[in-house]
Simulated assay, not measured.
Amino acid sequence: LRLSQLLALPRAARPLAAHWVIDESSAVALAQRGGRHTRLGFFVTGATLYVLWNVTTLLGALGAEAIGDTGAWGLDAAGPAVFLALLAPMVRTARERVTAAAAVLLGLGLLPVLPGGVPVLVAALAAPAVLWAEGRRTPRPSEESPR
């Protein structure tokens, strides 16, 4: 919904652009100053990933066994690293930093004791937990003392 407002595309272009609404194109678009830069970031990222995804899929289908054990290359860490790199510029306020830190602590702390994928889901609870804690600290207007 946010991208729809920022990109302000003609109605006929929206179904085509929807195919490129992914983490990477959204993060790059949202990191721009607005207007033309937002659209340019979105479309360049979407087009680049579309081409590279298909080319690397073809290469993988033709000769993936040539690179050997992908676990030995540490490629499983590339996805989360790219995702964190995309999110880092968007974490600006103290609330966002606290939320990110709490999510990391929850995710990494529960990684050894929960089945795969579950720590990520639990880490998502960091956002409502931080908002709840922040709400408990902030006095409500009816609780403030008169001046």
Rank of each mutant, 00 (worst) to 15 (best):
S4H: 10
T70F: 10
R95I: 03
A103Q: 02
P115T: 10
A103E: 02
F42Y: 13
E144C: 13
V51E: 04
T56F: 14
S4V: 11
A88K: 03
A31M: 07
L121I: 14
V91D: 03
W73Q: 08
Q5D: 13
A29S: 04
R11L: 09
T70D: 08
N54V: 01
L87F: 09
P128G: 06
A31F: 04
A88P: 06
V113Y: 12
F83W: 01
R14M: 11
G79K: 07
A126P: 05
L87M: 15
A100V: 15
V122R: 04
E134N: 08
R33F: 00
F43I: 02
A81L: 14
T138N: 01
P80G: 12
T45I: 00
L52M: 13
L1G: 15
R33E: 13
L87H: 09
A102E: 03
A81F: 10
W73P: 05
D23A: 12
A81N: 01
L40T: 07
L16F: 15
P128C: 04
E96N: 07
V44H: 08
A72T: 09
F42T: 02
A103M: 02
G71N: 08
H19W: 14
S142D: 12
L108H: 05
E143W: 07
P89Q: 07
M90K: 06
T93H: 05
L7D: 06
L121P: 06
A18G: 13
L105Q: 08
W73F: 10
L84A: 15
R39L: 08
E143I: 03
A100G: 06
H19S: 10
I22L: 12
A61R: 15
T99D: 05
H19R: 12
T138E: 14
T48G: 14
F83M: 13
